[in-house]
């Protein structure tokens, strides 16, 4: 099987020849091409060239679209701060007063520069690599998207204490989410990864997720035309995955490095695709030997689980990670039977 066949198999509930490998090398491509990050996160061709190098050197089974959620803040009118070695961050939230969302226009996917950048990057990657490898779109779920507009604290306050306004904001943003995710599929994404930044146990109690978030997510996911894989965003996620597994079009979940595959599998049943859970943002600190040991532990734990993808969890693999570490992750799925 090539990468595409392997990923297509696990996404459609069939057995792959081996575990696919997912590594968040979105940022890493810039290091491989020496591209300044301002350019990398605004020029789709520059991004695609970086991913071309990622694919050539490391052969992951998935190539990711730009993994930089602040681009969504930018698409709504926010400004970004760029760094030398990490994805951009929000310089200042778009909304200082949550109720001012009435004054914002939803971004136009055909003309908004940030959105055009993201969709073109997928299109280029799909046209160059789409026969061999899966291209993943990256979007934000509608309950988390307001974080990009006003910051976590203001959105959390609004959500907790201004329920009517929160409902209005979610109702306003939901059609944009559906339209945007479907555009990513049309551009060539085989699945869309959704960092669930708000609906995690670190932010919300389960009861609020169940009562307030699930109806919105159900309505939003019902209208999308492809598989969704939920992403842990760097925080433990497992305690809520059983809820999300019931949502339309959710085919998988990426676990945090602190989540247990065994516990999660026991809670969600056999069919949901589980990914992870190497600690991606810290892998520049590991030796090759440690990397192999970490992979081995996960692979042995999952050896009888066909719906599993070995991968890094959380945000990007740091740009200064030695290539040998990334190679060690990629090769571990081939080597597992020799260990």
């Amino acid at each position: 099987m090539n990468s595409k066949e392997r990923m297509t198999a696990v996404l459609s509930g069939k057995h792959p020849d081996r575990s696919p490998v997912s590594m968040n090398l979105a940022l890493y491509g810039a290091g491989l091409t020496g591209c300044p990050l301002v350019e990398y996160y605004s020029d789709p061709e520059a991004y695609a060239l970086g991913q071309e190098q990622v694919s050539r050197i490391f052969q992951p089974d998935i190539l990711f679209a730009p993994f930089a959620m602040p681009l969504y803040a930018q698409s709504f009118g926010g400004t970004l701060r760029f760094y030398k070695d990490q994805p951009p961050n929000i310089k200042k939230p778009v909304l200082s007063v949550p109720d001012d969302f009435h004054l914002l226009a939803l971004p136009d996917p055909d003309n908004n520069p940030s959105l055009v950048y993201m969709r073109r990057a997928i299109r280029i990657m799909g046209s160059r690599h789409g026969n061999e490898v899966v291209v993943a779109g990256v979007a934000m779920d509608p309950v988390s998207l307001p974080i990009m507009l006003m910051g976590l604290d203001k959105w959390l306050q609004t959500f907790l204490f201004e329920e009517t306004m929160a409902t209005d904001i979610l109702g306003w943003i939901l059609p944009f989410f559906r339209e945007w995710v479907n555009i990513l599929f049309e551009e060539g994404a085989s699945f869309v990864a959704l960092p669930m930044a708000f609906t995690t146990p670190a932010i919300l109690p389960r009861k609020l997720v169940l009562e307030r978030c699930m109806p919105v997510l159900k309505q939003a996911f019902d209208g999308v035309k492809g598989p969704l894989i939920l992403h842990s965003t760097g925080a433990p996620f497992s305690p809520f995955i059983d809820l999300f597994a019931t949502l339309p079009n959710v085919k998988g979940a990426e676990l945090n490095c602190k989540d247990s595959f065994q516990d999660t599998r026991a809670n969600v049943g056999e069919q949901l695709l589980l990914m992870g859970n190497l600690e991606g943002p810290n892998c520049n600190q590991w030796s090759v030997k440690q990397t192999r040991e970490k992979c081995k532990t996960i692979l042995q734990d999952r050896k009888d689980d066909p719906f599993f993808i070995l991968g890094t969890s959380g945000p990007d693999i740091p740009i200064d990670t030695p290539p040998a570490i990334i190679h060690a992750i990629g090769r571990s799925v081939e080597d597992v039977n020799k260990w």
């Binding site: 976590l152 959390l156 306050q157 907790l160 670190a202 932010i203 919300l204 109690p205």
Partner: peptide
């Protein structure tokens, strides 16, 4: 022990 940011914020409120 299973506490979230929301818990803290509700306590503050």
């Amino acid at each position: 022990e299973g506490l979230s940011l929301s818990h803290g914020y509700i306590a503050g409120k």
